[in-house]
């Protein structure tokens, strides 16, 4: 299990200073995640789940503890190395989509490829494939404000997965969607997970959280429960 672990957090601590009070966003987090897992992180507001997600996504660095991603020791990496590791292994999906409003759907999807310096012809090929995969071909030249919420989140997912990252981090991916389109987006994410992509979803939504095979609950910056449905199933069977 540890040999194939993709994400390994040991004794992670993270404190923010708000005004003159210290906020312990993460305290003594130990977490090991294997490639291909489907994890939900739940907990009340301010429980540190978003900070955990940012930490895993290399947007934040721990004050103490060690974090290994895909065999890399995060502490030893420079900012630029973090940026390129992030672009290779992490895909982000946000509640508010974060699409760039002046760019077309296709251009938004293309952005990670552009930043990674991939050639134009290769980019066109990959983007048209992604448009096909996510059913966005006839929306390719539309701006985000001409798209429905579900279409926007599909564009965001296409953008997050265009570089074939090994980890997909979703922060309330259905928060701004109605239940039908939310369901559609979740099945899309689950399909990606079924193809081997590690999926970590942060959510308030219990129904959504319950769909994950492994469910983590957080409270006041610590992990209070970590239940693996597969283990439960095996324990029930015996």
């Amino acid at each position: 299990m540890t040999a194939e672990s993709l994400i390994k957090l040991i004794g992670i601590e993270r404190t923010f200073i708000l005004g003159d009070s210290k906020v312990h966003a993460l305290r003594n987090i130990h977490l090991t995640i294997a490639a291909g897992e489907y994890i939900s992180v739940m907990g009340p507001s301010g429980s540190g789940k978003s900070t955990l997600l940012n930490m895993i996504g290399l947007l934040d660095v721990p004050d103490a503890g060690t974090y290994q991603l895909d065999g890399h020791e995060i502490k030893s990496l420079s900012h630029d190395a973090l940026a390129s590791l992030r672009s290779e292994t992490i895909g982000f999906i946000f509640q508010s989509f974060h699409l760039i409003s002046r760019l077309s759907a296709a251009a938004n999807i293309e952005l990670p490829l552009v930043l990674a310096g991939i050639s134009a012809s290769e980019r066109t090929k990959r983007v048209s494939q992604a448009l096909k995969d996510y059913g966005l071909i006839d929306r390719a030249e539309h701006r985000p404000n001409e798209l429905s919420g579900g279409q926007r989140q599909r564009v965001a997912i296409a953008r997050a997965t265009i570089l074939r990252p090994s980890v997909l981090l979703a922060d309330e991916p259905t928060g701004n969607l109605d239940s039908a389109t939310g369901e559609e987006v979740v099945s899309l994410l689950e399909a990606l997970n079924a193809h081997g992509m590690t999926l970590i979803v942060v959510t308030h939504d219990h129904a959504l959280g319950a769909r994950a095979r492994r469910q983590i609950r957080m409270m006041d910056g610590g992990i209070v429960s970590d239940i693996n449905q597969a283990d439960v199933a095996t324990s029930l069977a015996t």
């Binding site: 996504g57 947007l59 900012h79 630029d80 940026a83 390129s84 992030r86 672009s87 290779e88 982000f92 974060h98 760039i100 952005l111 990670p112 930043l115 990674a116 953008r159 997050a160 570089l163």
Partner: peptide, 16 residues
């Protein structure tokens, strides 16, 4: 600001 944050999240480094 949000756009810059996004660019960083999808792999842009500071010099880019």
């Amino acid at each position: 600001t949000a756009e810059i944050g996004l660019l960083k999240a999808i792999g842009a480094n500071a010099s880019t």
